[in-house]
Amino acid sequence: MVDVLKRSYSIVLLLAVWEAAVRLGFAPSALLPAPSAVAIALVRDLGEAHFLSDLALTLYRLFAGLVIAIGAGVLIGIGAAQSRLGPMLLEPLIRVLSPLPKIVFFPAFLLLLGFGSSPRIVLVVIDAIFPALLAAYFGARAIDEKLIWSARAAGMSQFACLFRVALPAALPSILTGVRIAIVIGCVVVFLSEMVAPGDGLGDALIRAARGFQTVQMFVPLVTISLLGFVLDYAVVRVRNTLVNW
C-alpha cells in the first residue's frame, strides 16, 4: 500500500493541489468541484436507484459489446493467421477499416437500429474488435511454426490445433489486445450515450450539464474512468496468473 502511494505520488499531489485550490477559493467550486466533493457524491449516488439503473444499462451495453468484439476478434484473428488466404483478405481490410473514425457510423446505427441499446452495442463492437483481432492475428502469426508442425505430426486435426496450440501460444498477445479493447469499449459506450442521450452514464453527464450541477457532471465521468482503470488492472492480474511462463 505504501509502495503504491510512493509510486503514484504525483496523482496524490495533483489531487491535493486541486482540493486546496478549491478550498482556498482560487477556483470557484461551482465551476470546479473539489475531488472530495466528487468522491462523496459518487458514494452517495451508489445508493441511488436512478444512478444504479444508469450504471447497469451502461455495463450491459459495454459487456455485450465486449463479449462479441473479443470473441469474434480472437476467432477471426487466429483463424486468419493459420490459413493461407487469411492474411491476403484481412490485411487490406484492416488497412482500410482500422484508421477510420468509427464513431461516424453511429448515426447510421441509430437510423437502422433505433435509439435503444443495440446501436451502442454495435458501436462498441466495431471499435473494440480491432485491438482484439489484431492482437490475436499478430500473436498467432508469431507462434513458432514448429509447435504447429509437431502437433499436426502427432495427429492433431487442424481445427483442434487452433484451440489447443495456437490459442494458448497467442494468449499473452491476446490479453494485451483485450486490455486495449476494454478501455476503448468503456470510452466509446460512454461517448455514445452523450452523443445521442437517452439513458446510461453518459446521459447522466448530459443531464447534469443541462442543470449546471457541476459535481454531478463529474460523478459519471469518474465512474466510467474508474471502471476502465479497474477492468484494465483486472486483466493484468489475470494475465500474470495465466501467463506465468
Binding site: 496523482i11 495533483l14 453527464l205 465521468l221 476502465g228
Partner: peptide, 21 residues
C-alpha cells in the same frame, strides 16, 4: 516517475466527454 501515473490515470478517461465541463 512523476508523469507516468498521471498519464496512466488519464488514459481511461473519455476525453471528448470533458467537453461540457
Amino acid at each position: 516517475n512523476f508523469i507516468a501515473p498521471i498519464l496512466a490515470a488519464f488514459y481511461p478517461v473519455p476525453k471528448a466527454a470533458l467537453m461540457p465541463i
